[in-house]
Design a protein around this nucleic acid. Structure first.
Length: 1146
RNA sequence: GGGCGCGUAGCUCAGUUGGUUAGAGCGCAGCCCUGAUAAGGCUGAGGUCCCAAGUUCGAGUCUUGGCGCGCCCA
């Protein structure tokens, strides 16, 4: 017996039970054990942070991350799934600061770095329970107990190893980075923080003259006209930038001495501001001004260095600063088209400096100048009236100074957005250079691009689009952070010589000669034994460890203060998750090598510049190109010998699904305060994890950004889950009634077990496909076709199309196969071969579908598997559906022709019902005849042999196929554009017109008899065969008909007495069945029926169709009149009111 | 300001290499069927495929420009 379905149980409750079952039986572990020797399918878990609550967007990533590993496991791969947690970084510090009610670095220092770090470590696990619960509840199978954690010592050391590798290869260097700097607080702000603080303010907008120099270095009477809104940056000016392709004009201003150079397009704008004419005396492209020297507005540095020259690669000498440079970022949207460059105070400006420096031989180029201190006040290098003053306060005095010296050309105020500190909103931020560590990623740009080119991105436009473009504009990775909670940068500096070296592990550090300072950790641990040992490799403990300098006798090596960008942590996970440290042998090495690169990763779009990039960059820098490729030799010089590339491109991942972002119900970003989404737990309780998963997988391709829609999640229940459930329910109800027990059918064979799934061929009542009915063969064909389609799509990481295929099959199974097979399930002979065929067929369909949907809706699938297979076959089948192999397509079972034919029947049925609707003829009312008109007669003879089927579906007495149906139908002929288009070209519209005007019926008849027709298109004979045209049918007015693409169905609507009587009988069956249901009759209960009616036709009908009525309603006896002690039930049959008496007699 | 993506029915979204009747689900309305009942089926209304120009015999699909939205970066 199949277990009876408990209708009071919700999907959600069943899922929780299934989750328990998996846990108790260690099913996930068993799926791995079962594939111990299988080829690996490698999945990387992009580590989430557990210091925030998970929301529905996280459900999406976790669902997709689960789908493909489950699928691949069933397909015969071993898919280890190590969980991971991202634990470092500013967000954690911010959380802790909030908790402590502090903000600035000073406050953190005052609180104490040591307790602060300890709090950070605790904070990262704040919502770990919620995350673990979510992970389990959504059915994301991943190895949580052995998760990698980015603050763990083994992880940090693995990161250290990689950084040491880069350092030793000269790829890790110190430079300047222009950051948004909060001068009053002494700290840099992250992009997100800066974004929060933008505010509209009024700032000075000044136009300043930079007089050009002639070849002798003397000032001329022509000046560049430069615009700036930050006068305080002018003392640190180093260049003036122009766009090489923009046209520049030399203009004369009547009221001013000398000539000015401005972008030609801006002359008029400027003149309008001045309210006077500017006369253009010459024009030239920007490229002609490039290289000219000028006199900057302040001469502090200039007077020292104006004649400094550097040596170019070509050997030529050139002045290094205070000259015009070319830059593509210059526009003519505002200003003058000549842009003041102060590299110390602008990221773009700084890039110009770097680009200039790169042109010169070793260090001979311009150096950064900066007359402002980190406190935002001018240093002694600034103008004397500014020294020691906050830069913004000096604007006025600087402007006055310029005016006095005749360099100020125009001054106005401008209102624009400017960032302020988000926690001290009176403090404007300034861009400021800070010492920073960089990874020389730019050197590997081509390799990264080559690597990217081989990755299979879904959607593919990421490759050359967002990600590719990002790689194209690669800049060196600014690695260091002046913060506390992060992987410490493993570089120790000699206090005397400033020489540095990288350290690869804690042991290596302690083994250094004279290593000391580890007792700081020991003391902390003694004081608080609860401290996790992993903290010893963090600030402040690690900073205490020093050792003897190998560079200078008596000097100590001290660690640099910085920690690193936590994106580096995440990007290092392919090796750091195993604690890999470059060793050729050992467990870590084996684990790493067998799990690199990944076959599949998936995260949301916001990871493009995050995890996707950090992984690719680190991997490309460390593991380079394909072994044995030509460029391998080139890189050998820099790569330490211990590092051999172990994989061909692409690495570190081969396939990547980039998920769209999930928005809240209102289309806005999900936000706790707006409450525009529901907590995942509630979704699971209301609708279940399968409903949520199916909604993600089947509603849209995964990369579309989706709006969270409660209704859509809810809808996936009736649209799919319930439909499948109903088929299952139908099957078990009747299988139990008929005592169809598949395992008992093996009585003579002594049981059967096939390693992969079930083999029924030995079952006594099991007949080979060929002996079964066409309907059975059809649904099995659909089943196998579906398997093939699902596998094909899933191998392409296309879950959306795979779901469509599954959905189509379940619809066919439920709405055609089961419906068309009801008679067989209801037949009284329990052992008739036809009935048993129906059971075997439906059973196979259900078992296969169960396995097919297992990766998508693992809970429902497991439930079905347990009740359909395990309760029946016990340990002769896998104990979980997830231990099964994925169903494959048996080509012998597919039958394309049959599929097309059945589709045609389904279409004809649908059209027939359509036609009935149009004249309000209920399907219950039999009709005499249906005429089917086909545009294409390929399947006509088959349909003729299936007339009974159509007759049953449409409740008609006869089905006819009209050969020439010109009485009902207008034929119109349309050319097959795809076929004829290339041949006919411009003549297409003419042919279309010709065919449209022709007598379609005649043309078709001619074509049928001759095989082809010749038409004259503007004097050119065109020969058309059957495939060159498309026949369209249209029912003529006055007929009850419906038309499809290539078929028209015409109904005969005249009703004879017999037909009416039969209709009434069917109506009577319907109402009696309703009564039976009301009375809670068992399916087998016999009844007696009394009918009281004035309607003669009904009496007549009962007499005519007595046998039919008795059979359908299990009525032993029909009488006209009331039954004693039975209450009358009033019903309507046709137009008449009828009193019905129904008594159960057994 | 730059890059990328998106814009198709009331809503959520499909739409193959360009091929002439643009689809699905939901919602709404009407009807039907029911011994699967937490069901199921059919039909209908609803579309200038954001706009404009171009390429083409033919454009929802390709090109260019514009408008709107989103994300990332400045």
């Amino acid at each position: 017996m199949f277990p009876k379905i408990d209708k009071s149980e919700t999907f959600s409750q069943r899922e929780v039970a299934i989750g328990e079952f998996w846990k108790q039986h260690a099913v996930y572990e068993k799926t791995l054990a079962a594939r111990a020797d299988a080829p690996p399918f490698v999945f990387y878990e992009g580590p989430p942070t557990a210091n925030g609550m998970p929301h529905p967007g996280h459900c999406l990533t976790r669902a997709i991350k689960d789908l493909f590993p489950r699928y691949r496991t069933m397909r015969g791969f071993r898919c280890e799934r190590k969980a991971g947690w991202d634990t470092h970084g500013l967000p954690v510090e911010v959380e802790v600061c909030k908790e402590l009610g502090i903000h600035s670095k000073e406050e953190i220092e005052a609180f104490g770095v040591e307790p602060f770090i300890q709090k950070c470590q605790q904070s990262v696990w704040r919502y770990i329970q919620q995350w673990q619960q979510l992970t389990e509840r959504i059915g994301f199978w991943v190895d949580l107990p052995n998760a990698y954690v980015t603050y763990h010592q083994s992880y940090v050391e693995s990161v250290w190893w990689s950084l040491k590798n880069l350092f030793d290869r000269g790829l890790l260097y110190q430079g300047h980075k222009i950051v948004w700097w909060w001068a009053q607080g002494g700290t840099a702000l992250s992009a997100g923080e800066v974004g929060q603080g933008y505010r509209e303010v009024s700032d000075p907008s000044v136009y300043v003259k930079f007089p050009l120099l002639n070849d002798d270095g003397n000032v001329t009477d022509t000046s560049l006209l430069v615009w700036t809104t930050t006068p305080w940056t002018l003392p640190s000016n180093q260049f003036a930038a122009v766009h090489p392709d923009i046209e520049y004009a030399t203009v004369v201003d009547q009221e001013n001495e000398g000539q000015l150079i401005v972008a030609k397009d801006l002359v008029e704008v400027l003149a309008a501001k001045l309210k006077r004419e500017l006369k253009i005396v010459a024009t030239c492209p920007g490229s002609e001004i490039v290289g000219k020297r000028y006199s900057p507005p302040f001469h502090t540095y200039y007077s020292e260095a104006k004649n400094t020259q550097g040596t170019l690669e070509s050997g030529k000498k050139q002045y290094v600063a205070w000259k015009v440079v070319a830059a593509n970022f210059v526009t003519t949207e505002s200003g003058t088209g000549v842009v003041h460059q102060a590299p110390a105070f602008g990221e773009v400006d700084y890039e110009v400096l770097i680009a200039e420096q790169a042109k010169y031989d070793s260090g001979g180029g311009p150096t950064l100048i900066n007359c402002v201190g980190p406190d935002g006040k001018f240093t002694d290098e600034g103008p004397d009236y500014c020294r020691g003053r906050w830069v913004k306060e000096c604007d006025k005095d600087i402007i006055r100074d310029l005016k006095e010296r005749g360099l100020l050309y125009l001054r106005e105020q401008i209102v624009h957005d400017y960032p302020f500190c988000w926690r001290a909103d009176e403090d404007p931020l300034i861009q400021y250079p800070r010492e920073s560590w960089f990874i020389r990623t730019t050197q590997f740009k081509d390799q990264m691009l080559a690597n990217n080119a081989k990755i299979n991105w879904q959607p593919d436009h990421i490759q050359d689009g967002r990600f590719g473009k990002f790689l194209e504009s690669n800049v060196d990775w600014a690695l260091s952070r002046e913060r506390y909670w992060g992987t410490p940068l493993p570089i120790w500096v000699c206090e005397k010589t400033g020489k540095m070296e990288a350290v690869g592990s804690y042991d290596e550090l302690l083994a250094k000669p004279g290593a000391t300072g580890q007792e700081v950790w020991a003391a902390a641990k003694q004081k608080n034994p609860e401290l996790p040992d992993d903290l010893r490799i963090h600030k402040p403990y690690i900073d205490a460890v020093t050792y003897d300098s190998p560079f200078a006798a008596g000097a100590q090596m001290r660690r640099v203060p910085e920690v690193i960008d936590c994106w580096y942590d995440a990007g290092a996970m392919p090796f750091a998750q195993w604690g890999y440290t470059g060793q050729e042998a050992g467990t870590e090495s084996e684990q790493f090598q067998s799990q690199f690169p990944a076959d599949f990763i998936s995260e949301a779009l916001d990871q493009t510049r995050g995890w996707f990039y950090s992984q690719l960059a680190i991997s490309t820098l460390l593991f380079g190109e394909d072994r044995g490729s030509r460029s391998e030799e080139r890189n050998n010089q820099t790569r330490p010998s211990s590092l051999t590339p172990r994989s061909s491109f692409p690495h570190p991942f081969r396939n990547c699904i980039v998920l769209g972002l999930m928005l809240g119900e209102d289309g806005q970003k999900m936000s706790k305060s707006k409450r525009n989404y529901r907590a995942p737990d509630e979704i699971f309780d209301h609708y279940g994890a399968d409903a949520l998963r199916w909604y993600f997988f089947a509603n849209q391709p995964p990369w579309t950004s989706i709006r969270y829609s409660e209704q859509a999640i809810k809808d996936s229940i009736p649209e799919f889950l319930l439909r499948l459930w109903n088929v299952y329910s139908f099957f078990t109800i009747y299988a139990n009634i008929d005592s169809f027990d598949p395992s008992a059918e093996f009585a003579s064979a002594g049981g059967s077990k096939k390693e992969n799934g079930l083999d029924f061929s030995n079952a006594d009542s099991f007949r080979p496909r060929a002996e079964r009915s066409e309907l059975d063969r059809w649904i099995l064909s659909e089943l196998h076709t579906t398997s093939a389609a699902v596998i094909e799509r899933m191998d392409e990481y296309d879950n959306f199309a795979a779901c469509q295929a599954i959905l189509g099959f379940v619809d066919a199974l439920s709405n055609w196969y089961v419906r068309r097979s009801r008679d067989r399930f209801w037949a009284s002979d329990k052992r008739s071969p036809e009935k048993l065929d129906a059971y075997w067929t439906l059973y196979e369909c259900l078992l296969t579908t169960t396995r097919l949907v297992a990766p998508f809706v693992p809970f429902l699938a497991e439930h079905l598997w347990q009740n359909l297979a395990v309760t029946i076959f016990g340990d002769r089948v896998p104990e979980s559906v997830h231990l099964c192999d994925y169903p494959e397509c048996d080509a012998a079972a597919t039958d394309e022709t049959l599929s097309a034919q059945m589709n045609l029947v389904r279409e004809i049925s649908s059209l027939g019902r359509n036609a009935r609707t149009s004249v309000q003829l209920k399907v219950r009312q039999p009709l005499a005849k249906v005429e089917v008109v086909l545009a294409d007669d390929t399947h006509q003879s088959w349909l003729e042999s299936h007339a009974t089927l159509i007759a049953e579906e449409l409740n008609v007495k006869a089905v006819e196929f009209a050969a020439d149906a010109r009485q009902y139908i207008d034929y119109s002929i349309v050319p097959n554009f795809k076929r004829l288009g290339p041949k006919l070209g411009k003549n297409m519209p003419k042919l279309k017109k010709l065919l449209g005007e022709a007598d379609g019926g005649q043309l078709l008849a001619d074509l049928k008899s001759a095989g082809e027709v010749v038409l004259d298109v503007e004097g050119n004979p065109v020969t058309l065969d059957a495939e060159d045209i498309e026949v369209r049918l249209q029912a003529k007015e006055g007929w009850t008909a419906a038309e499809g693409k290539g078929v028209v169905v015409v109904l005969a609507t005249e009703l004879t007495k017999e037909l009416v009587a039969e209709g009434l009988a069917r109506d009577l069956v319907r109402v009696i069945q309703d009564v039976r249901k009301d009375k809670d009759c068992a399916f087998t209960d016999r009844i007696e029926v009394g009918v009281v009616t004035e309607l003669a036709e009904l009496k007549n009908s009962v007499e005519m169709f007595n046998d039919y009525l008795a059979k359908e309603t299990l009525a032993e006896k029909f009488s006209f009149g009331p039954i004693n002690n039975v209450e009358a039930i009033n019903v309507q049959i046709g137009e008449a009111q009828v009193e019905l008496f129904v008594q159960v007699i057994s």
